[in-house]
Amino acid sequence: MDILITGLFLGGTYALIAMGLNLQYGIARIMNLANGEMIVVGGFSAFWLYSSAQVSPLLTVFLVAPVAFLLNWLIYWIMLRPLVKRAKSRGQLEVDAILATFGLAFVSVGIMLAVFGGDYFSYSYLARPIRLLGDTYALNRATAFLAAVLICAAIYLWLNYSRPGMSIRAIAVSPESARLVGIDVPKLAALTFALGGAVTATGGALISMFFTLDASTGVIFTLKALVIVIMGGVGDVRGTIVAALLLGVLETFVAAVIDPGLTLAAAYLLFIVILLFRPQGLFGRRGT
């Protein structure tokens, strides 16, 4: 039972991170392999503000999100838009985006290593036990989960019921037709990319409350987020959440029962199974 709940707590935070990536890949069509670094940046900010000025990470989020939004918006216009423009095919854009965002990831890891060094950083915030259904859990994990749920719900509602949200979903389905009905595709793609970055960085700030990060942990998160996105289905918010929860539970189970060192291996196993049997994602329909 406690595995299930701990797993769900973890999965909730994963959902937030993967949601950021899914917005970027599903709508802006950029496979952002620097996603994990955005998490670390978010985590770093939370750590730094907490340890230097005792600012609660829950407040930091309100600073991190807009800054990350702006940063990702700039990244899209300066780095990625030229690639979108020059790409002759979807495949070429994919390769270019992969290489460019890998470059970005390594550059940011390099800069963080130079500025902060290679140390692990962690801080103790809300590290109190709480009792739930007869078992004890860490309060910070529960808080992060709650915040993640709120943000995921907000995004889901926004995408489904607001006008820009509707346009964004239209782009996800068919960029060409979206353009024909008067949707400014580049502008909204940039917006979604920025939003995805902001969501991811927020996830980073939340995750840093209970996760030890260092400058180069980003890639592990990128991998997990990618597995979740593919498992949940590209552009599918509901699938992302379910897949993230599934991964959170699986990882917690493997860590508790077999070996904590095997969490990524477990994620991969799940990935292989999905690739072999449902490459279109959990809820995706087979391509027509």
Partner: peptide, 19 residues
């Protein structure tokens, strides 16, 4: 400590300058 940075810059050079 800067090998990672070098990797990153190389990727960017490849994509933007030497496709």
């Amino acid at each position: 400590n800067q090998t990672t940075l070098l990797l990153g810059v190389s990727f960017l050079v490849i994509v933007y300058l030497l496709p």
